[in-house]
């Protein structure tokens, strides 16, 4: 029996792409990078990755992920797994920098708007947010970003950062409270 056309044209799942790559088809890896590289870069930049090293960190995230594919059994989303690796990379980078968090807002993060005053205000708000994120403990910062920037639920955040959903919820609320105070 023929599969419906919609099934034939449906994009492959991440798990299927992982399987393809493990079977020797490099297009699986290429497609996974195409799907997730930009999102990983956003997370790394938001979480304090050195702006000059974001490209390298993204590459290293994927290299570590593909090296350890045998360890990914698909219990968590592939993207969550990438965030988990990226988080560990940031931890290493943080240690190398002697405990300093580097959070800088790129000038182009805010694009020109029709309303220059609103753009200026938004730019200032984001500068404050970025600065505020830099003062948070690592776990609070990453939970906040995974929730607010990436839209992940607490279960997925807990799996990604190796904590519990309840703890992730508490970290998020602590982060929001602290950021509100800093931006008031």
């Amino acid at each position: 029996m023929r599969a419906p056309a919609a099934e034939l044209t449906a994009p492959l799942t991440d798990a299927a792409l992982v399987l393809a790559y493990r079977g020797g088809d490099e297009r699986g890896a290429t497609e996974l990078v195409a799907r997730h590289a930009a999102v990983v870069a956003r997370f790394l930049a938001g979480a304090g990755g050195d702006p000059g090293e974001i490209d390298d960190l993204v590459q290293e995230t994927f290299i570590r992920a593909f090296r350890a594919l045998d360890g990914w059994r698909g219990e968590s989303a592939f993207r969550s797994w990438l965030f988990s690796i990226a988080s560990n990379l940031l931890k290493d980078q943080f240690r190398r920098r002697g405990g300093r968090t580097m959070l800088t807002l790129m000038d182009d993060d805010l694009h020109a708007d029709d309303d220059p005053a609103a753009t200026l205000e938004a730019r200032e708000a984001e500068r404050q947010l970025q600065a505020g994120l830099g003062t948070l403990p690592r776990l609070q910062r990453e939970v906040f970003l995974l929730r607010a920037q990436q839209g992940m639920d607490y279960d997925a955040i807990a799996t990604t950062l190796d904590t519990t959903p309840g703890a992730a919820r508490v970290h998020y609320h602590h982060a929001v409270k602290r950021l509100k105070e800093l931006m008031a």
Partner: peptide
């Protein structure tokens, strides 16, 4: 805060060349 967080890192994402990375 959430709306601000959504915009963070957009330039880093835009500059990421997935083809080169892969």
């Amino acid at each position: 805060l959430i709306q601000g967080a959504r915009r963070l890192g957009t330039e880093a994402a835009r500059r990421t060349d997935a083809g080169r990375v892969s």
